[in-house]
Amino acid sequence: MSATSCDTVRESAPDFALGALTGRERAEVVAHLDDCPACQALVGEYASVADSLLELIPEAEPTAELAPPVLAAMRPSPRPRWRHRLVALAAAAIIAITGATGLTVALVTRDDGGTSSSAAPPLRSAPMVGSGDLTVGRVVTTSNRPPTLAVSVDYWLPDGSYQVAASDRAGEAAPVGTLDVTDGRGTWTGRAAQLGHPVAVELVDQSGHVVCRGRLAWPPDARSQSPMGQSGSA
């Protein structure tokens, strides 16, 4: 427990929520909040009030569309050509060694759990890992009901259509959509109708081979297997 008392923190809670404390004062409050749920709740109430102040600010129309520069910033910077060649050679070697039927054995050797907080975050993500432990993209899912799945790939996969298949912790698996890769990139967003919280998402090529997979870690309380409606978009 920090040296700062609850009375002191309660007095400073409005200033803290507004960001009006100095760095040292703020650090003292933060240290206290780590161990005091009651003060956390109070600060949370003040923080909601502070956030609401921004809700009053009127909207305004920018003179230019903001989407194009935002989309431009989201594009990955071009990789050196030598890296493309190196990865292609490595992938070819791995495929030659494992053979088509052994390809899936090499899949999913890494799982970073993709979370920013230990307390049931609303979004969970994981890398889409392909042959040779190569990260080829990312999967993100929401914790709402029904959860949305979003898959993107931007590396290594040959152009073409891939089936998106998801499975839940009960072991049920189902195709949920199709992701098209063009010029090495593709995205798919949609929902898994029949499944609970998805724990694995795979891309399957035209031959039925799993080319990459993402494993999503869920906290113990996220065990609902409720039926979900279905929708999707390429």
């Binding site: 129309e61 989407a67 935002v70 709402n144 979003a150 967003t189």
Partner: peptide
């Protein structure tokens, strides 16, 4: 929240809709 999930993985359609939905507010 759904749009944010699509935006997070770089879905261009989700990104465009997300920005269009919130740009006046953010600006």
């Amino acid at each position: 929240e759904t749009l944010l999930a699509g935006f997070a993985v770089g879905d261009a359609g989700a990104a465009e809709t997300f920005v269009a939905r919130f740009q006046r507010r953010v600006y």
